[in-house]
Design a protein around this nucleic acid. Structure first.
Length: 809
RNA sequence: GCCGCUGUGGUGGAAUUGGCAGACGCAAGGGACUUAAAAUCCCUCGGUAGAGAUACCGUGUCGGUUCGAGCCCGACCAGCGGCACCA
């Protein structure tokens, strides 16, 4: 078979018949939306990882189509982002030009793959037609009170005079010039994702997602139930701490504020001022990663101030320490060194008292003791335990008006401002008189200018562009400036799956009816690295849009599947710096797109991935040859043969294959699906090699079923074989084979016979035998009698269709 | 440091979810065809002992539950991934 020729032939026919398009007019078939995470057009070429994501997922989509669904499978590009801008800084090639060129190459390669993408719905996030609506999304969130501004730190390189992404900070230093990075506060836009924390958490229950991913999201959201407690300083200033262990509040020997806490300097005594300022400065210089490292020694400083524990009136010192994070809880903690590891370490280092208030039940209490136990030394609460104690103390705190129960989330609001060029401009105008004013929707998009200086020199590229920056205030008409920042690219990817439903609409982001017809996504396939960010943001957008009345479903992705990662042959992640990048191109040239795709499906466990190796790609080629040979041979079969033992065996093999392959395809177990088809092919060869007259009808039908089952995995190849064996129309218009249960019912089933849990022999027993009959038959076997002679049967375990275990003694 | 996942032949990976470990392949060895090679076809292929039927051992390690454990429980080791010192 001339692989190149048939790939071209069928791709052209599919194209001509608009075969890959979702059929909007077909309302009879059930819709099925299969989505793969769209690609980032970074390097110039499609790599093995793209293939591994898109090839098998396309086979799944084709499988669903043959099962009778009206399948929608779009493709697009997540085209804004940092790499294109970095590339521009390095080479001078404009991000728009390099991105467009990369997209053009990738489109060609994706088409050559022969996947069933509906290119009429293609979406590119860097086009005006798209980012107009990304900006519109921003405005809706703003209107709804879900977008707001506040100060937040950025990584700042004082030498390059530029903001760095976390990725660009290597060991606390700028990746370009090795200058230590400092943190600098800027006023930036946030989305209030925390407003949806509870629903994002509870909504996970019903999703058909990997448990692992759901758990990661749960941990990311990080709900905890605790208590806020108010402490008052001698100065009269008050602050609250958050704790999950109110049962230990009588054991507080000091409290700690985060170095960024607004009260930190205010309460500091003159004697301590110098030390405190130095410490705050020190904390600001250490990177977040350093600060969060647990192997790092605890550091802190005494403010000189004291505050009062509201439950017992004790005065305790106030410290600053960077193990307390300003962004979590209240930015202040009560320290109970007897019952917390970190507090214990800190107290030991700084010579602070340690007061035991929890006693281990039925054992010696070794400090720090962090488990639940019996409360001691806590007045009226003595003797209470665990949850009971926490609840009682929290109620008491609430009663005395010093705080009370509080639910906290680890989840933080989503910072969306980026001091970058290659992104969607934030549609806000800053007016000295009116403040931050949203750009009127009719003026969207706020166009990203082409002629900018994107080399870093202290100001973000848009801020230097006079024509872009200077505008008039939509409210008062006075002179005003645009927001110089662009949106995080995760904003673009938080709604693209909605735009696919109505990609060319220039009146609204999507038509409600179009979205209702297609959404939610039935199966979403993509890498596990997006477990927390992208998948959470997309869920947030969906819920926010629902609450604004634009959607009426709660979750965007019903089912989620993560493909594994294909590593380099050396077992490391593929990267240019490792020099272990494998290009699919040579393989495709030699073996063809179908064989390469099938090898990816067969050689790896889809959700696991693994190091690349091409051992076995030849085997797929051989398998296809074998299928081709036997298929063409079926053309030579004529007449009516018998339907006896051999025919029943073939019919069994055929139906067994149909059953298993259907299950395996549904569960993304592509490697076993192909293994079953190999077995079936072997069975066809075995039958063909038999002497005597053959049953042509059975053989031809079997070959046809094999071709149909193979079609999703090797689409061009199967089309060609289907045609060459007399098939009419496209193979993908055929119905996927359905098993015939009666062919799978055999008169006898093989049982493993065990005596005292050891297999002694195998036996064919009637499939419809009762447990008692099976037991009797097993006991009569010579291999069994030899081992049971003179012993009594103590127990007999029968597992229907599998084994008998006779326990004798 | 915490959390999560993974650990099965020389190798990629199967195992009906507690029921015959190693499906289907690759590699290797032997053979057939061939002047020869390639291709193709057939056989062997976890380990040890044995000519052999067969016996014993075997799913990272050690224990446990069970008639029965790759799968469940406990402890440990190794590798990978994520990260929140979350109070």
């Amino acid at each position: 078979m001339d692989i190149k020729a048939i790939e071209k032939k069928w791709q052209m026919r599919w194209e001509k018949e608009k075969f890959n398009r979702f059929d909007v007019k077909d309302t009879e078939k059930k819709k099925f939306y299969v989505l793969e995470m769209f690609s980032y057009p970074s390097g110039a070429k499609l790599h093995v990882g793209h293939w591994y994501n898109y090839g098998p997922a396309d086979s799944y989509a084709r499988f669903k189509r043959m099962q009778g669904y009206n399948v929608f499978q779009p493709m697009g590009f997540d085209a804004f982002g940092l790499p294109a801008e970095n590339y521009a800084i390095k080479t001078g090639v404009h991000p728009k030009d390099s991105t467009e060129a990369n997209i053009a190459t990738m489109e060609q390669q994706l088409k050559a793959m022969g996947a069933m993408f509906d290119w009429s719905a293609e979406v590119k996030t860097c086009t005006e037609e798209y980012y107009k609506w990304t900006q519109w999304m921003f405005l809706q969130l703003y209107k709804k009170g879900l977008a707001y501004r506040k100060e937040a730190p950025v990584n700042w390189c004082p030498s390059c005079n530029t903001v760095l992404a976390n990725e660009q900070v290597i060991d606390g230093k700028c990746e370009r010039c090795d200058t230590p990075v400092v943190r600098k506060n800027l006023t930036q836009w946030f989305f209030k994702i925390t407003e949806y924390a509870e629903e994002l958490l509870s909504g996970l229950i019903d999703l058909d997602w990997p448990e692992k991913t759901k758990n990661m999201q749960r941990n990311w959201i990080g709900k905890s139930t605790g208590c806020e407690i108010e402490f008052e300083c001698e100065s009269g200033d008050t602050f609250r701490v958050y704790t999950t262990r109110p049962d230990t509040v009588f054991g507080v020997t000091y409290v700690v504020l985060a170095p960024e806490h607004p009260l930190a300097l205010k309460i500091t005594t003159p004697e301590q001022r110098e030390a405190v300022e130095a410490y705050i400065d020190y904390a600001a210089r250490s990177s977040e990663i350093e600060r969060l490292s647990s192997t790092r020694e605890k550091t802190g400083v005494f403010t000189g101030a004291y505050c009062t524990n509201p439950v017992n009136g004790k005065k305790v010192p106030v410290y600053l320490a960077d193990y307390v994070l300003y962004s979590y809880g209240t930015g202040a903690v009560m320290a109970v060194p007897a019952h917390d590891e970190r507090d214990f370490a800190f107290a030991t280092k700084y010579g602070l008292p340690i007061v035991k208030v929890i006693e281990k039940q039925g054992g010696e209490t070794v400090l720090p003791y962090t488990e639940d136990g019996i409360v001691v030394g806590s007045l009226q609460f003595d003797g209470l335990c665990g949850e009971e104690a926490r609840s009682a103390i929290a109620s008491y705190i609430s009663k005395i008006g010093k705080g009370g129960k509080k639910i906290n989330y680890r989840l933080r609001d989503w910072l969306v401002s980026r001091q970058r060029y290659w992104g969607a401009p934030i549609p806000i105008i800053h007016c000295e008189k009116c403040g931050a004013v949203p750009v009127p929707e009719k003026n969207l998009p706020v166009k990203l200018p082409y002629d900018v200086e994107f080399r870093p020199d202290g100001k973000s590229p848009l801020a230097k562009h006079e024509k872009f920056m200077n505008t008039t205030c939509p409210k008062c008409g006075g002179p005003a400036k645009r927001d110089p920042d662009t949106l995080d690219t995760f904003v673009c990817s938080s709604w693209y799956f909605l735009r696919y439903a109505d990609p060319h609409n220039d009146k609204e982001p999507f038509d409600r009816e179009a979205v209702d017809r297609l959404l939610p996504v039935d199966t979403y396939v993509g890498g596990a690295e997006h477990s927390c960010m992208h998948l959470l943001y997309a869920r947030f957008f969906t819920k926010a849009l629902r609450d604004m009345g634009y959607l009426d479903f709660d979750e965007p992705f019903k089912r989620l599947v993560h493909q594994g990662v294909i590593l380099g042959p050396d077992g490391n992640r593929m990267s240019k710096s490792h020099g272990n990048v494998v290009s699919p191109d040579d393989y495709i040239k030699e073996y063809g797109a179908d064989a390469f795709r099938m090898y990816l499906m067969f050689g790896f466990s889809y959700t696991e991935g693994g190091p690349w190796s091409d051992d076995g790609i030849k085997a797929i080629s051989r398998f296809m040859d074998r299928v081709e040979k036997i298929a063409l041979k079926s053309n030579e079969y004529f007449g009516y043969g018998p339907f006896e033992r051999e025919e029943r065996a073939l019919d069994y093999a055929r139906n067994y294959c149909i059953r298993q392959v259907s299950r395996d395809m549904e569960s993304f177990s592509f490697n076993t699906a192909i293994a079953r088809m190999m077995e079936f092919t072997n069975a066809l060869y075995k039958y063909d090699a038999l002497p005597g007259e053959k049953n042509a009808k059975l053989f031809k039908e079997s070959v046809r079923d094999l071709i149909l089952m193979l079609a999703p995995c090797a689409p061009h190849f199967a089309e060609e074989l289907f045609e060459q064996t007399g098939g009419k129309g496209f193979v993908f218009e055929q119905k996927y084979p359905v098993e015939n249960p009666s062919a799978l019912r055999l008169a006898e089933t093989e049982y493993a016979i065990q005596v005292n849990s050891k297999i002694v022999c195998k036996a064919m027993l009637p499939s419809d035998a009762t447990d008692e009959e099976i037991k009797t038959a097993a006991l009569a076997l010579p291999e069994v009698t030899a081992r049971t002679e003179g012993k009594t049967l103590k127990k007999c375990v029968v597992v229907k269709g599998r084994l008998v275990n006779l326990i004798v003694g």
